[in-house]
Design a protein around this nucleic acid. Structure first.
Lengths: 255, 255
DNA sequence: CGACGGAAGTTGGCTGGCCAACTTGGCCGC
DNA sequence: GCGGCCAAGTTGGCCAGCCAACTTCCGTCG
């Protein structure tokens, strides 16, 4: 597989960003070293300074470099996984770690949406949804219980997939369902009877919960999911900075 | 207090962004409505299209609007708290929710840094650090145990603060210690004896843990902290998109 | 020897312009 | 009536240039 599928695709500034990312990760500028000036990079890559700045904005958002007026940029950390697709797709994430992802479909039913689901998926009263319950494994060991609710248009496609399909997002993409934006909420919850049975833990034992709503490029919700992870298997990591940030901490709301 | 302290400060594109954010939140464009074209906004605000694009990039990163070539931007959600300072400062966050933040200093000691601390704070072997243990409350009720390790330069200042000081980040800012970038890792951990005693829960009961390393604009670490929250008091929420993102999920590493 | 000041270097911000890629809607032909 | 084609509208991307704000460093002066 091409490793640059996402990173160096298409635009010039992405190519420059991918190249700089590589250079930083391989330590070309030292650990806390300074990057060349924007002008120098522009000349080096044969692009305008604006393009270099677009590339550097990507690296800054990923927390690879600092940026402040008056000084060269400084290398902050190195190597961050490409995040969006890995956050959306358990399969993609697992493979990027060299693990073998698996999934066992527990149930898939079509039923009327409740109030909360209508709210999250922005559906009219009376609309039906497809509710899925799935156990996800990493190289054979159970790590997560996934409860996903799909609107009709998406659910119909998912329901037709073979029950042992590992990835759902990949086939969906081929049917024109695009995942573009997602909101995630992370907290702790106790295992209920189903969780305990599937994950092999005790009822009430703590699980890391991720609630997620995904929309397509037009803003239409395509997925509303609740994933519950066994502690010790995963953690979530975020970088934020004064310049840009995509994270917020907030009081718990009602489910 | 000026509510636009961060949002509309200084640059033109931030003012435009703040204005658009306000318009979106107040529903001027409808719930899933479409924004005016970039050109129209540029004319309306009397700025160039590039400046409008900078403003819209902020909104896109916050998940307020989509953006895709060929169509007008679409309103996604509305109203997201300003995230960076609220994520760094418990005090700031609490106040933005209308709660009264409190803190009780349990201990503050100066001691040699262990290997992990030297790694996180990028210190030379033999350097001493200031280790703090603090119970944080929201309107009187305990919600979080904070364990923070400071490098000497910062710790000396913190140690001089009165023990009942609610906010530490604000006085630090006045002494020239600037918080600029932070890496966060979120997972679940069981309460140890200290946690249980301070938070009033049982030993081993699940806590939401946030590990955080903060650096100043030069990339020098200024803080390494482990916060443990009682479940049900907080959750972390993140937005990410294909266009830009600051989040990644990864396998748990050793502490 | 230390403090102050200024010059050079660097990033932030903004403008104006151009073309390409893509979406949408309407028109036209079948 | 239906489907396909085309044009207008819109965002993505790139360039060249200019000035302001800020940092750093060095030389000078006390």
């Amino acid at each position: 597989m091409a490793p640059d599928q996402d990173s160096a695709a298409g635009s010039l500034y992405r190519k420059v960003a991918a190249d700089l990312r590589e250079a930083i990760t391989s330590g070309s500028f030292g650990d806390a070293g300074r990057l060349p000036a924007e002008g120098a990079l522009a000349e080096q890559y044969g692009v305008s300074r604006g393009t270099v700045r677009q590339a550097l904005a990507l690296l800054r958002a990923d927390g690879l470099v600092t940026s402040r007026r008056g000084t060269r940029r400084v290398v902050l950390g190195s190597a961050r996984v490409q995040s969006f697709s890995e956050l959306l797709s358990f399969t993609h994430w697992a493979r990027s770690m060299g693990e073998e992802p698996g999934g066992r479909l527990e149930s898939m039913v079509r039923r009327p949406a409740d109030a909360a689901e209508r709210e999250h998926l922005r559906l009219e009263p009376g609309t039906e949804v497809y509710a899925m319950l799935r156990l996800r494994t990493l190289s054979g060991t159970p790590v997560m219980v996934e409860r996903t609710v799909y609107p009709p248009r998406v659910g119909e496609l998912v329901a037709q997939l073979p029950p042992d399909a590992v990835s759902h997002t990949e086939p969906l993409r081929e049917h024109g369902i695009l995942f573009s934006d997602a909101d995630h909420t992370i907290d702790v919850v106790g295992a209920n009877a189903d969780d305990a049975r599937l994950l092999g833990c005790r009822r009430g034992s703590p699980l890391l919960r991720e609630k997620r709503r995904t929309t397509d490029p037009t803003g239409t919700p395509v997925e509303w999911s609740q994933d519950r992870y066994l502690p010790g298997t995963v953690a979530f990591s975020i970088h934020n900075s004064l310049a840009s940030s995509a994270l917020s901490r907030h009081a718990r709301e009602n489910d």
